[in-house]
Every structure is written in structure tokens, then in C-alpha cells.
């Protein structure tokens, strides 16, 4: 186990390993996206209330899930980097942040596009929307901090600490926003059929799950690509990078 970790946690071996992995995972992403999108956009029945626009769900919900999942990856990698000084983990946190921010942004935009025909408004101060927006700000804060620090070591450690504080705060923020919302106005908008509603029909559930897996694998592909670029950048003065670049 530790031999394995030792072998692949070194940036050089990981670079090669990721290079092999990326085409395979990219293929899986394309296949899953094709199946999921076909099922979601053509086979799934239109909603009796929402009509065709319910199909936004197949992008919106996986993006929202990923926005939270990626923050967990970011904080987990940050913690590993902080505790064991694993270079690869530090790079993972830095590489994951922009992807997570993009997923969060995508969730907000698709939610807004979905909200306009359904709720008649681009934006509502609903609990979920608000906590997603704050999550975006947390991502942007993390990225701004990373960008402001020149020393990669300090950037990684400061970012990891911030991510950990953020992780502790996310549930607090989420529940605060939820209670704030219920205290101020009746939860009229959040009761529209989302995944939390009971009994989502299998014809909708399957494409949704396939899309969720497709998004996850897509995240893995982009993360590995960004990691490879990051490894090359950080190790740009080493011998092995010069060899790889030449060949």
C-alpha cells in the first residue's frame, strides 16, 4: 500500500500515470455524457407541469452536486497536504479550485435559466441559491488567496487552512441561510420538485444518475490534466521534465 502510494505520489510518476489514465477517462466521459444527454433530452418525458424545461435538471443538479463534492476534494487534499506535506495533494487542491468554481457558476446559471420560466424570476433569495452563491464566494476567496501568494509552499498551506475553515463553515452557512429563509418568508419556491422530493420517476432518475457519474469522471479528467500542467510548471527546472518535453 505504502509502496504504491510512494510510487504514485511522486510528481514524476504521477505525471506519467495520469497521462495513461486521461484518454481512458475522457472516453468514459464522452460515452456517459452521450447516454445521459440522449436519455435526458430525448427519452425522458416532459414534466406535466414544467414541460420541456425540466430537462435543465440534468445539467443543473449534477453541477450543484459537483460544486459541493469538489469543495470536499479541495479541503481533503488541502488537509493531506497540510498534515503530510505531500506535494501532490497541495497541487490537487490548487488544481481543483477553478473547476469547482466553474461547477458552482454553472449550477447558478442553469438554476437562473430554470428559474425564469418556472418561478418567473432569474433570482430568488432561496436558501439553496444563497448558500450556493456563498460557496462560489468561498471558491473565489480561495483562488484569490492562492493567486496573491508567490511562494507555492505558503500558498498551498494558507489555502489549505482557508479551505478547512470553509468546510467547517459550509454546514453552518447552509443551515443559517435555511433558517433565515424560513424565518422570513414561507418556503414557496424550494418545494418545486427537486431531487429532495419523494419518488422521482425512474425515467428521470436514471439519466440524472448517469449525468452525475459523467460529471464526476469529467471532473477527474480535467483535474488530471490541470495537475499534469501544474506538475510541469512546478518541476520545470528538473531533469525529467526536460526529457519529457524533448521527446
Amino acid at each position: 500500500m505504502f509502496d504504491f502510494l510512494h510510487k504514485y505520489a511522486s510528481p514524476r510518476n504521477f505525471y506519467d500515470f495520469a497521462g495513461i489514465l486521461i484518454p481512458w477517462l475522457a472516453g468514459v466521459t464522452v460515452v456517459l455524457l452521450a447516454i445521459g444527454l440522449y436519455q435526458g433530452l430525448f427519452l425522458a418525458p416532459p414534466d406535466y407541469q414544467q414541460g420541456q424545461s425540466v430537462r435543465i435538471m440534468f445539467i443543473h443538479v449534477p453541477a450543484a452536486w459537483m460544486s459541493m463534492f469538489v469543495y470536499m476534494v479541495l479541503a481533503g487534499a488541502g488537509a493531506v497536504g497540510l498534515i503530510w506535506h505531500l506535494k501532490l495533494a497541495e497541487m490537487t487542491a490548487a488544481a481543483a479550485a477553478p473547476i469547482g468554481a466553474s461547477f458552482t457558476f454553472l449550477a447558478l446559471v442553469t438554476g437562473s435559466l430554470w428559474g425564469k420560466p418556472m418561478w418567473g424570476t432569474w433570482w430568488a433569495w432561496d436558501a439553496r441559491l444563497t448558500s450556493e452563491l456563498i460557496l462560489l464566494f468561498l471558491y473565489l476567496g480561495f483562488m484569490a488567496l492562492q493567486a496573491a501568494i508567490d511562494d507555492p509552499k505558503r500558498a498551498a498551506r494558507a489555502g489549505a487552512l482557508l479551505a478547512l475553515i470553509g468546510v467547517v463553515n459550509i454546514p453552518v452557512i447552509h443551515f443559517s441561510v435555511q433558517w433565515w429563509n424560513t424565518l422570513h418568508q414561507p418556503a414557496s419556491v424550494s418545494s418545486i420538485a427537486k431531487i429532495g422530493a419523494p419518488a422521482i420517476h425512474p425515467s428521470l432518475l436514471w439519466p440524472l444518475l448517469i449525468m452525475a457519474i459523467a460529471f464526476t469522471v469529467f471532473f477527474a479528467v480535467v483535474l488530471l490534466m490541470r495537475l499534469r500542467a501544474e506538475i510541469l510548471h512546478r518541476e520545470r527546472y528538473t531533469h525529467w521534465v526536460a526529457e519529457r518535453i524533448k521527446s
Binding site: L140, G141, A144, G166, N169, V172, I173
Partner: peptide, 10 residues
Amino acid sequence: SLLVLPLYTP
């Protein structure tokens, strides 16, 4: 402010 304000929301 970018780091701290989101944490101040609760």
C-alpha cells in the same frame, strides 16, 4: 474582505 465576508454571513 473576500476571504472573511462569506464566513461572516451566519
